[in-house]
Amino acid sequence: MKNFLFGLFLGAALMLATGFSFNWVFNKSFAQAQTFIPEYYQQLAWGKHSQMDAALNLLIKARDHLDKAAHDYNGHRVKAIEYTDKAIQEVREGINFANNH
């Protein structure tokens, strides 16, 4: 019985520790995601639409990584850049729509 209670306590402590660590990592990575947006995009879409703003940040960062990729990847990198540009445009239009309605 003593071992069972100890195991139960230990399991609960590990679950809590894991939950707190995942929460800490998520919050830290989300905060970092909002720091790399260039100033000219901040003026266009930064405000009350936090999820859309975070998506815009990540798309801009992805676009930057695609630009810096070393290879062409048989045209797939160029196609990915086109799709990313379109996604950035759509997110901006969604934010602008929400701001005006």
Results as ranks from 00 to 15, higher is better:
1 M>F: 15
1 M>V: 15
2 K>A: 15
2 K>R: 05
3 N>I: 13
3 N>H: 12
4 F>P: 06
4 F>V: 09
4 F>C: 13
5 L>P: 04
5 L>Y: 14
6 F>Y: 13
6 F>R: 05
6 F>G: 04
6 F>T: 07
7 G>Y: 11
8 L>S: 09
9 F>N: 06
11 G>A: 13
12 A>L: 04
12 A>N: 00
12 A>E: 00
13 A>E: 02
13 A>T: 02
14 L>R: 04
14 L>Q: 05
15 M>V: 15
15 M>Y: 15
16 L>V: 12
18 T>F: 12
19 G>V: 14
20 F>E: 07
21 S>D: 12
22 F>N: 10
22 F>G: 06
22 F>L: 12
23 N>T: 12
23 N>I: 08
24 W>N: 05
25 V>Y: 13
25 V>E: 11
26 F>P: 01
28 K>Q: 15
29 S>M: 12
29 S>A: 14
30 F>C: 06
30 F>N: 08
31 A>V: 00
31 A>C: 00
33 A>I: 02
33 A>H: 02
34 Q>N: 13
35 T>D: 06
35 T>H: 04
36 F>D: 08
36 F>K: 08
37 I>M: 14
37 I>H: 10
38 P>F: 01
38 P>W: 02
38 P>D: 01
39 E>T: 15
41 Y>A: 04
41 Y>L: 01
42 Q>W: 03
42 Q>H: 08
42 Q>F: 04
42 Q>I: 05
45 A>R: 03
45 A>Y: 03
46 W>A: 09
47 G>I: 00
50 S>C: 09
51 Q>H: 12
51 Q>D: 13
51 Q>I: 09
52 M>Q: 09
52 M>H: 08
54 A>I: 10
54 A>C: 12
55 A>V: 00
55 A>I: 00
57 N>H: 01
58 L>M: 05
59 L>I: 03
59 L>Q: 11
59 L>S: 09
63 R>K: 05
64 D>M: 05
64 D>Q: 11
65 H>M: 06
65 H>C: 05
66 L>R: 07
67 D>W: 10
67 D>Q: 10
69 A>Y: 15
70 A>E: 04
70 A>M: 03
72 D>A: 04
72 D>R: 01
75 G>D: 01
